[in-house]
Amino acid sequence: MPNILVFIEQRENRIKPASLEALSKATELLRTSGGTLSAVLIGAKEIREQADILGNYGASVVHVFADPQLETYSANTYARLIAETATSAGAEAVFFSATAMGKDLAPRVAVRLQAGIASDCIALELDEKKAIAKRFVYSGKLISTIELTSAIKVVSLRPNSFSIVETKTTRHETKLHDYKPEPFDLKTIVKEIRSLPGKLDVTEADIVVAGGRGMQSEAHFKLIEDLASVLGGAAGASRAVVDLGWRGHSEQIGQTGKVISPKLYIACGISGAIQHLAGIASSKTIVAINKDKDAPIFQVADYGLVGDALEIIPEFIAEMTRVNAEN
């Protein structure tokens, strides 16, 4: 039965939850068939200490490349190490999470392994012969079923679409590997990471609160930020308000912005244009606040509130603040 290798992403020596989703899905697929599940972890020296965590999610072998030269991301280096590990581990499938890093690596690894590839999958089945994956195409308007029939298959899984499951068996083996740089590795080393301070990204948040032109001014986005903050979520925006310069592009949700799949999405003063819906199709629950009862956003909303967002949001914030205080 297929052996699976899962790439584990870390930033600043912390493993990304999305990688645990990919590992949990691989564990589930191997439960009945009994192939070997390996994980590969690449980073600075300190990353070694994180290897044991992976046993709790089903990895039976953890391959670790821990070297000061691997502290900053390099697409060429990481792709080479993952492909080489896949080959030496006899992996028939390599899993990534479809994060910025996973999406950058998966196609490179697929070329190196002469593998078929399916990106940003929302469902996945795997047997000895093939992998069958489902993914959104045409910006969320349609779902495509993809079949991979190559000897090795590469897939990336959409973050927040698969659950993290802890397993009881924690027996695993850690294999430390040396890193020897090759000339092509060095060409893509990241020099510096510039982060937006203290900001939770809309693609990584469980709850996203977004505002549109219906918020009526840049200043009113304080309400969006406050609601996001009491809910422990991230603030987002429609393209209309990004184009107006009210919010930065990193917050834009939709076809030419970010695709999100939070547990809860709250759209405030957003009409629900098709290009906006492209970014929210895989949200678990959608709440819309809009004063126009015929706004298209209500067609995809699980809960709709018809009314003035500028009045409803403050009430919502007050209610949540009260609930938070009680707990």
Binding site: G116, K141, I146, T149, S150, D302
Partner: peptide, 23 residues
């Protein structure tokens, strides 16, 4: 001569959501 190995086998519409509650 070096052909890819990924096939799109089916296109479908996303499952329709049950109508939401308007409050």
């Amino acid at each position: 001569s070096a052909a890819g190995k990924t096939h799109n086998t089916k296109l479908e519409l996303p499952p329709k959501k049950a109508p939401g509650k308007i409050l």
